[in-house]
Design a protein around this nucleic acid. Structure first.
Lengths: 332, 332
DNA sequence: CTGAAAGCGCTTACAG
DNA sequence: CTGAAAGCGCTTACAG
């Protein structure tokens, strides 16, 4: 696999490599005669020339690579957002490197190092618990970074997220209006701020009413088992109950519990889930859910990062996008 | 974001860049005194040195990058396999570039060019219809490539796939034994060989019996609509019927049709689907499915590619892995 | 045990 | 309108 270089073209077209470089890059201002231009292009075509981006990167000190670190790529939410980010990145001439750290701070750190060695021009990251140290290192190096979905409590970073608290308030209000006697919030036992926002938003509204609310919090692993176990302990079908699943994983685990136990929705219990996923559509009843604006999140994150790359500003913008409640038929 | 280089270390440690390079790469044989070794490592640590892989790639003519082109990353099958491939690649010291061509040969071609410019050492590809031209170009350049999941009719390429025909035969036999009066094969109207194998394997067995079989073939877009439309036209609940969905997308579309029309499984109709997906588990009954050995496919494809990279052989091995029928409770 | 030098494939300021 | 030359950050054969 010997590949042609600019030097080969220069030799065959009997010009200097500088001239070849100029015509290949279509630089205006440095006028090359139409004749030599044609000749060079022809030779390039003939010997099947492919530019070596690595050499270009080295010289330009820009790789046109960006790195994306998601918390878990096997999660539909992240794989969909990764795909949109890839499209947006390509529009701006970037190639995307995707890494999944699977909620593991060690792996997160390794990915930042890998990307850094690979000379990415910037990174879009979904921070995980205990990733602060790795992130602080990037900040000290003035590495352009932008957060997506999640954000950090103690570090102000440019990024895009949704109105987690407000959308949960909205769901809570919606449920309160329907006169349930019991509400169940299903969330994670975590310190991730965006998830706490979802929880706090929901509970804020409850405080003002006298409806009883139960909290089910699971670890980030064994979600299915923990949700099953806790729903079994807490779900009282003699009460008029509504459940709010604050993530797609929790929603899927919960729906599976209901299926397994032949609990009918919304006849026996009502529910609202978070995120859209294909799986919701195979559930016997229409699941109402909170939809995040994935495409917009992707677009804005890439735009923010591109800004950071071209004009570094540690106090960059934090953008809050609006999630949308998709009312279908799982609450009555 | 000014980054330290080997030169900076050399200056501060008062040695040559060559010496720095040697100790950083731990090369045996070129013994550097323990004292200078320590000094260099210390300086590197102090100034927070990160190696520039781009420079190394240029010099070594190896990027340690591999490219993966899947047909559609929004498909669980491909996103899961991509994830496994990433892990396997990393084990061998490669960084993975992922691209999805969305069944579009133009996009496929663009991705091969992009990866080629990015100097990937090799590519793992899932060919799409009309991608032959782009692939032939890679072959002419002796680019190390390996196919995964799919393969090409007219081009012999190393790669890994499953026993598509045999597993379909097995499913067919399984259904024939249960004495259905009607079988429905749901597949794609396509020329992709691996899908034709699934179809032919299934029909091969039917020929030998006198059970009636209907074929439902959809385009690759609007799967949901087409499956609904054709199931409506062809599904006769007065007969004892079993349906075989030959992909996860088809399975999901079909299950959704059954849900929407309140058709019970397996009471009203029996079915077997292809691939495992979370969505199957939210269906009101247990879906029997064909499970592909994703992790093994990923591992073997990376191994094959690594072989190709280190020792190019256009007549490389084609590896056929065994899919597994997971019998649950959707056939009676 | 250590260093000077060439070179990977590009770009670009400068000179002519 | 075109070219010679320097340099991006590395590695390594060679010399000492």
């Amino acid at each position: 696999m010997k590949r042609a270089s600019i030097k080969d073209i220069a030799r065959l077209a009997e010009v200097s490599v500088a001239t070849v470089s100029y015509v290949l890059n279509q630089k205006e201002g440095s006028r090359i005669s139409e004749a030599t231009r044609k000749r060079i292009l022809e030779v390039a075509q003939n010997i099947n020339y492919t530019p070596n981006k690595i050499a270009k990167s080295l010289k330009m000190r820009k790789s046109k690579l960006i790195g994306l670190i998601v918390a878990d790529i096997s999660n539909d939410f992240y794989s969909n957002i990764a795909r949109s980010i890839e499209d947006e990145a390509m529009k701006l001439g970037y190639t995307l490197l995707i890494g999944s750290c699977d909620e593991n701070p060690e792996k997160f750190k390794r990915l930042t190092e890998l990307f850094s060695e690979q000379q990415v021009d910037g990174m879009i990251i979904a921070p995980v618990v205990d990733s602060d140290e790795a992130i602080n290192k990037l900040i000290r190096e003035e590495y352009p970074i932008v957060t997506i979905d999640r954000y950090l409590k103690n570090i102000d970073l440019p990024g895009v997220m949704i109105n987690n608290s407000e959308i949960s308030e909205q769901i809570c209000d919606y449920l309160l209006k329907k006169n349930f006697t019991e509400l169940i919030y299903v969330g994670y036992d975590t310190e991730l701020p965006h998830l706490l926002d979802r929880e706090n938003g929901f509970e804020k509204r409850i405080e003002k009413s006298d409806v009883k609310v139960k909290r089910i919090l699971t670890g980030i692993h064994n979600i299915t088992e923990e949700v099953h176990h806790q729903l079994k302990a807490n779900l009282d079908l003699s009460k008029k109950t509504a459940i709010y699943f604050s993530s797609n994983k929790l929603g899927i685990a919960g729906l599976r519990y209901l299926i397994d136990n032949e609990i009918k929705v919304p006849a026996d219990v009502s529910l609202v889930a978070f995120d859209e996923t294909e799986a919701y559509y195979l559930f016997p009843s229409e699941v109402s859910f909170v939809q995040q604006p994935l495409a917009e999140m992707a677009r804005e994150s890439v735009k923010l990062l591109d800004n950071q790359i071209n004009n570094y500003n540690p106090k960059g913008e934090r953008m809050i996008l609006q999630a949308k409640f998709m009312e279908r038929n799982s609450v009555e």
